[in-house]
Amino acid sequence: MNRLNQLFQTKKENLLSIYFTAGYPSLNTTVDIAEALEKAGADFLEVGFPYSDPVADGPTIQDSSQQALENGMTLNVLFEELKELRKLVTIPIILMGYCNPMVQYGVERFCKTAAEVGVDGVIVPDLPMYEYENLYKDTFAKYGLSNIFLVTPQTSEERIRKIDGLSNSFIYLLSSSSITGGSLNVSDAVEGYYQRVKTMELNNPLIIGFGISDNKTFSKACEYANGAIVGSAFVKYLGSRADYLEGIGEFIQGIKG
């Protein structure tokens, strides 16, 4: 059982996860940012490994990825940082990024190194379910890494059940079919979708992400799910002031209310 499973066993409501792009705003900031987030009360973290062509991301995360690559961030650099990070930070860490850097690194080597440096789960939006199931599932399992799947308002019930069967930490519920950085849609249709998934009584906890940016949207998401993820809003915050480490506590308080 990894740190994610332990977390979900002990805490079932109002879980807050924060996403940030490794290498942004500058290189060697991952450890400091993660430490500040843990201290401020984040329950788990998603660390983005940057990619040149992030199709599922909006302008904020695109720009942070570009900047991170220019700063020299690579998987090797990130894994070195995470080794240090694990000496100081105990909350679960998820890596988020795209297929191609992982494939070039070697999927087995990626899983092995990630596990060694204390990573608990991976989100790869463009890794298809078929390939995961047939090529990579056993490797992920061998190293105790959770693969986290996304679900959108358009995902069929049958497919959600299948995803639930393949998941072993949580399911990432998208607030709408959109790229990152939009605003939370709380139309009746979306509430209907949250309600629909909630009443399916899935085995895995649900965490809502995309468009969660403040206390209002976080609280709304927590009505339907076990927690929510803030991404673009935090990345935007990191880019907004030079002394960003000082204000992280306040940022998290603002989200949690």
């Binding site: 990619y51 040149s52 062509d53 199709v55 690559l69 690579t74 998987l75 090797n76 795209y98 297929c99 191609n100 850097p101 992982m102 494939v103 070039q104 690194y105 463009d126």
Partner: peptide, 21 residues
């Protein structure tokens, strides 16, 4: 190029050692 993933398919693409396009 080398084998990798670009725009939705596994194919051959020009990329850095780190898998950036």
């Amino acid at each position: 190029g080398k084998e990798g993933v670009l725009h939705g398919s596994r194919t051959i693409l020009m990329q850095t050692e780190d898998g950036q396009v």
